[in-house]
Simulated assay, not measured.
Amino acid sequence: MSEAISYEDAWARIDKFDPPALFDELRKERPLARMIYPDGHVGWIATSHELARQVLGDPRFSHSLEIGHFPVTKYGGPVPQFPAMPGMFIHMDPPDQTRFRKLLTKEFTVRGVSRLTPVVEAVAAEQIAEMRAQGDTGDFLEVFARPLVLKVLAPLIGLDYGERHRFADAPAVMNDPFGDPQAAMAVFQQVGEFVHETIARKKATPGDDIVSRLIATGELSDEELGNITTLLLFAGYETTEGALATGTFALLHHTDQLAALRGDLSKIDDAVEEILRYVTVNQYETFRTALEDVELGGEFVTKGETVTVSLPAANRDPAKFGCPADLDLDRDTAGHVAFGYGVHQCVGQNLARLVLRTGFRSLLEAFPDLRLAVPADEIPLRTKGSVFSVKSLPVSW
């Protein structure tokens, strides 16, 4: 297996929840392997847990699109280098990245997020009541996962949930690998207009939300505020929804694990971590560019080459997790990389955990007979794009 693999090979999932079988072969023989991207660029893909953490934690690898080279878009074309977007710190390196991230870190501490518990519980209860009111069958995405996440996230950021028609569909359109690039640009501009209207309103009438508090610091321009707000929406919405929906599918499919959790809900925190590891919805757009020549995993990465890190592959590494293809809610999941690793590790991970923990617990307590409404093999999956998820999840209760 000395030849370079194709970018397309890394999308070839073999089962409902499993990453491509190729990753198991690569991890054994060459955990850092050559990979050819659609535009012809030859870079690398890292599939082991050790190498994933090494790349993501090494300052010699950059996540900046300004100096780096991400060789393919969702639509198959190359991404040109372009100046950093002010405030879009996910594609910055320290110290610029540190400046913006520091403003948000205090918003998402364990203590700070814990204060939101009553809010999340109330929203979950509201959605359960709506489920009961509509009957005994529905699409889990529409009746629970999506509204729960958006009803929590939007007001926390400072966005009006009542105007969700202006922003709720944007992440899905932006991340659709088969979509129209012009449509994606149009929806991005639409969200930008809404966000800047929101910023203007918050300047006039501040609220108890992240946008208002960022404005109050006096440290950010309107452009920086707008890009940070958009980033929080795009990074937090679709990923948490995907983890909640796909995690629920995994529980309903693995009935032994579901029964064990129902029998002891005190294990909910451990269950959330295992579900995060098992489904790893952030599937394929974790990449870095070498700022200098780097020896890595017995290979020589040249300055300017792209290294893609497969988080799903890293979280299925048997050297770190025994029998990694099994969903095991009693597993020790310490060190999983579902939220990434290093300076770009997800800033909102504590909020995501709260939403998942509350969502799963509320469902299991409210619906002792929650089950799939169709055979598991008929659940449509979204296997391409930045977030692995179900397209719909018909359930009965």
Rank of each mutant, 00 (worst) to 15 (best):
Q54P: 03
L56D: 05
Y75M: 10
M35P: 00
D58S: 11
V42L: 11
W44H: 01
P71S: 08
P71F: 05
R34G: 00
M35C: 06
P38A: 04
Q81Y: 10
G57H: 14
G77A: 15
L32H: 01
A46S: 14
L65Q: 06
L56M: 15
V72F: 13
Q54N: 06
P80Q: 07
L65R: 14
F70N: 07
A33D: 08
A84C: 03
V79P: 00
P80C: 11
V79K: 12
I67P: 00
R53N: 12
V72E: 09
V79F: 07
L32Q: 00
G77W: 14
L32F: 02
E29D: 15
P83E: 08
Y37D: 00
H49Q: 05
S62W: 06
H69R: 10
F70P: 03
T73F: 02
H69A: 03
M85Q: 14
P31N: 07
P71A: 02
H49C: 10
L56G: 06
V55M: 13
A46W: 13
R53Y: 08
E50I: 03
P38K: 14
G57K: 12
Y37V: 01
E66K: 08
G57S: 07
S64T: 11
P83F: 14
M35W: 01
R30A: 10
G43Q: 08
P78V: 11
P80V: 12
L32D: 01
I45A: 03
E66G: 09
P78Y: 03
L56Q: 10
S62R: 09
V55Q: 10
P31Y: 00
P83Y: 15
G43F: 10
E66S: 08
E29K: 13
A46D: 12
S62E: 04
H63E: 01
G57I: 13
Y75E: 10
P38M: 07
E66D: 04
P59M: 10
L65T: 05
T47K: 11
A33G: 02
E66P: 05
F82Q: 15
I36F: 00
T47D: 02
S48D: 05
L32E: 02
A52N: 13
P59S: 06
L56C: 09
M35G: 00
E29I: 02
M35R: 02
G77E: 15
L65W: 13
P80K: 12
L65H: 09
R34E: 04
E29Q: 07
V79A: 04
R60P: 11
V42R: 15
V55R: 12
M85P: 01
H69I: 01
W44G: 03
R53G: 15
G76K: 10
H49T: 04
G77Q: 09
G43M: 05
S64Q: 05
L56P: 10
T47C: 09
G77D: 14
A33I: 02
P31K: 08
E50L: 06
S62N: 04
P71R: 12
P38Y: 09
G76W: 11
E50S: 08
Q54H: 14
T47Y: 05
L65K: 13
Q81V: 11
P83L: 12
Y37A: 06
G68Q: 02
V72R: 11
I67A: 02
